[in-house]
Nucleic acid binder design. Structure first.
Length: 439
RNA sequence: GCCCUGGUGGUGUAGGGGCUAUCAUGCGGGCCUGUCGAGCCCGCGACUCGGGUUCAAAUCCCGGCCAGGGCGCCA
């Protein structure tokens, strides 16, 4: 029924078929996006990674056998088509392919669980159940091409700036860092957890003399949140730099963000157009707003925010109303930040922590860290943590830990900013949320 | 976890105590030589699960499961 690939090789992707190939014999491969059978002429829209190309089969120009075989084809089946490129003003894109022969590489079952031509929208739940089919839609794959480009450009930027890529364990022993819930797992005869952040490890790397490190890796959070901007498994772009303070790493962050945006807008034009996104490259430096001023700004919008509290969702939205684009919130109260955040030396109630916001969405948070062993122990105790359970971490601070700072940037949240999607699940191939563990 | 709303063919929907359960898309068949959301004709296909009220439940009530939105939680 179906054919094997044998010696058949793709010569072009759909977008490489241009009118100047007129008269050339080419081989393309892809999925049947749509068929229009007009009786004496059949149009097959073949889709590949990059787009669509029209196969035009006029009964008078091709053999009756080939014509009959084409008529039998089904949507979403996989095809290799050898044919002649024909320039034609009537064809979409001004070019089409007159088939000489084809191989049916695999047939698709029908009906499809969702409509790949997007005539009928499917709900996100239906789409995620059949994600492989959903991803055949260009409006969906565009998100992942943009995410890929963003991650690429982040790596290039960091390598250029002297950062070393590291890998830290995701299987961890300690649940004592405080804050978020961890996923417990069985590690042979012991209990272990999935890592919530590479924070402690990248700090230990500062004591190794690597100076500047980054990691792009999954983080796991066992919170039962059910929102459009939370995931239980996400990718964190994490960075830590020695002999730096928070101002230094904020500068790195804003430059990285604007570089990535400009790189995406240059290399993902088609994808951005598909998504109808007009990406503006933000000017650096980003605006810095002190937490004290944020409290006033939020309250001025009629949203109650008490000094010393973290931003509620309503407070974030109020800020989103007032601020365009990217901005930092600095000078956070020390009390609502983790133990490893450096208090401000002139006013210890305030810290050297910052968040990077895009409108009403927090996409990154970072800080200058405490590098003095005794202060770190004191901060842990104040937070109700037991320093004994941090022995291996604390040891790194006893043998020459340089001052350092760093941040973590949520890859999916940043992708939301780049693509304009409203639901963070759109930015993950196979998202993990409160209820979804498959596929 | 809480609040609100919902669950109807493969997909997306209308309806809302008894009628042949609406429409679009899809799928199957037929016609058609320039489609590009092709068109026309014929056909196929559905009321989330459990319990209750009722002569009668897809519709009303209770519970479960699931979803959408909002919030909370979230170094």
């Amino acid at each position: 029924m179906t054919d094997l690939l044998t010696n058949c090789k793709r010569t072009q992707y759909s977008k490489e078929i241009t009118p100047d190939l007129n008269g050339k014999e080419i081989t393309i491969m892809g999925w049947i996006h749509e068929m229009r059978d007009l009786g004496g002429i059949i149009f097959v829209l073949l889709r590949d990674r990059d787009g669509l190309i029209q196969i035009t089969a006029p009964s008078k120009k091709i053999s009756p056998e080939l014509f009959a075989d084409i008529r039998k084809l089904k949507k979403e089946s996989v095809l290799a088509v050898k044919g002649m490129v024909q320039e034609s003003p009537k064809a979409p894109g001004g070019v089409e392919i007159i088939p000489l022969e084809f191989k049916l590489l695999n047939e698709s079952k029908l009906p499809l669980p969702l409509d790949t031509t997007e005539k009928v929208r499917a709900e996100i739940d239906t789409r995620l159940d059949s994600r492989f089919l959903d991803l055949r839609k260009h409006s969906v794959s565009a998100i992942f091409k943009i995410k890929s480009r963003m991650l690429h450009s982040v790596r290039v930027f960091l390598e250029k700036n002297g950062f070393i890529e590291i890998n830290t364990p995701k299987l961890v022993a300690s649940a004592t860092e405080g804050g978020t819930e961890l996923f417990p797992i069985t590690y042979f005869e012991r209990e272990a957890f999935l890592g919530q952040s590479p924070q402690l490890y990248k700090q230990m790397m500062m004591a190794s003399g690597f100076d500047q490190v980054y990691e792009i890796a999954p983080i796991f959070r066992a919170e039962e949140h059910d929102t459009m901007r939370h995931l239980n498994e996400a990718i964190s772009i994490d960075l830590e730099a020695s002999f730096c303070d928070h101002e230094d790493v904020m500068e790195i962050l804003e430059n990285l963000v604007s570089t990535a945006i400009s790189d995406v807008s240059e290399h993902c034009k088609d994808e951005l157009k598909t998504l109808n996104v007009d990406l503006k490259i933000p000017k650096t430096p980003f605006e810095r707003i002190d937490y004290d001023d944020v409290v006033d700004m939020v309250n001025s919008q009629g949203v109650l925010l008490t000094h010393g509290e973290d931003l509620s969702r309503a407070a974030e939205k109020a800020m989103g109303q007032l601020m365009e684009g990217y901005y930092f919130i600095t000078g956070w109260p020390t009390d609502i930040k983790p133990f490893y955040v450096m208090p401000n030396k002139d006013d210890p109630k305030k810290s050297c922590a910052f968040d990077l916001m895009y409108k009403d969405l927090e996409i990154s948070s970072g800080a200058m860290r405490v590098h003095q062993h005794d202060l770190l122990v004191e901060r842990m105790k104040k937070k109700g943590l037991n320093p004994d359970s941090f022995n291996r971490y604390l040891a790194a601070f006893e043998y020459g830990m340089p001052p350092h700072a760093g941040w973590g940037l949520g890859a999916e949240r940043f992708t939301m900013c780049l693509t304009g999607v409203k639901n963070i699940r759109e930015t993950v191939l196979f998202p993990r949320d409160r209820r979804r563990l498959t596929p």
